[in-house]
Write a protein that binds this DNA or RNA. Structure first.
Lengths: 184, 184
DNA sequence: GTCTATATACAGATAGAC
DNA sequence: GTCTATCTGTATATAGAC
């Protein structure tokens, strides 16, 4: 069934967002589903195959959320707030971004998966840059929209990681406040 | 000898800054020094002892660099640029911050080490906040100095992690440009 | 302080039966 | 698709000789 595959991805994603890809084993993943590790290998021959699937579906899910924001008749500031809210939801679940976690583990990723990961951040950055670009006159910062998009993405990813260490949401809130203050 | 212990820490730190604590084994660490893994256990009984030592010495080293900046007769903006230069040096070495890496791995850290890690970021944040506080009138942002300090720390940490994925330094540069633009 | 040797556990992955 | 069984490699950690 394709349902099993999706359940495996669900559990694996939650695990990676909590403890990272290195900490996820086919054995514990199988245990949580109620099958054997060899059966997991049927769905994902190698661990890198599972990683690829996780990155791609995370990106697709993220893209859907961005499209939903784009479809709204909101001003730039409100759209950006909705974008930040995606990260706040992740923080509420005591998780970090799947790709932010994998970024820390990128040394042990296959070249293919590193490219997928890079594409995820490029996509997010482009979406923000496009959003900022159409209303460039309402930006209170002396940097390019592309640069500001980079600051926002890396800032939010860093905030998620650091907030977990202290068990707070102060970094994410600080990022949110500053980012929104840069827009009129 | 105490020299061996320091050599072990040097190699271990480089390894963690490249691939993370999980990827570091006593065996490979021992191999690089030219001893056996059981000898590494003599210096650091458990892996968590090694982790503690790494965090503490990294924090002390960082603190020295901050003190050196504090001692200069520079304006706030130049001191902040010097602070950011510490991160640029890390990026130049194709590394990430030791504590930024461990922040991603915090789920598998002992409570003690999580506290040490939290203290590292608090320290850095306080240093920036103090720096900004004395010249609060030269800040172009409508957020508190404490919040701005959080934005700077999490932003730079996130930039180091994301830049490694694409193999660039664009995120760090964007963070630098924006941060410095917030000061008159 | 470092060694050999070993205990124990777990990792990714595969073969072949059902 | 899932299982049992197994191969192979590696991990942390310890005991005890030198």
């Amino acid at each position: 069934m394709n349902d099993k595959r999706r359940r495996l991805e669900d559990v694996a994603q939650a695990s990676v967002q909590r403890a990272g890809l290195k900490s996820l084993s086919f054995r514990t993943l199988a245990d949580e589903i109620g099958i054997k590790s060899s059966s997991v290998h049927y769905h994902f021959p190698e661990k890198s195959d599972l990683a690829s699937a996780l990155i791609q579906r995370y990106q697709e899910d993220f893209r859907e959320q961005l499209d939903a924001i784009s479809a709204r008749r909101w001003n730039v500031k409100r759209k950006l707030a909705a974008f930040i809210a995606i990260f706040e939801q992740v923080a509420d679940g005591e998780r970090v971004c799947l790709c932010g976690m994998m970024a820390a583990e990128c040394e042990s990723l296959s070249p293919d998966n590193r490219r997928l990961l890079s594409g995820f951040f490029d996509d997010m950055e482009s979406w923000i840059a496009d959003l900022l670009c159409v209303n460039a006159d309402s930006i209170n910062a002396p940097v390019s929209t592309r640069q500001l998009a980079k600051v926002i993405v890396s800032g939010l990813e860093g905030a998620l990681l650091l907030d977990r260490v202290a068990g707070s949401k102060a970094n994410l809130k600080a990022q949110k406040d500053l980012i929104l203050s840069l827009l009129k």
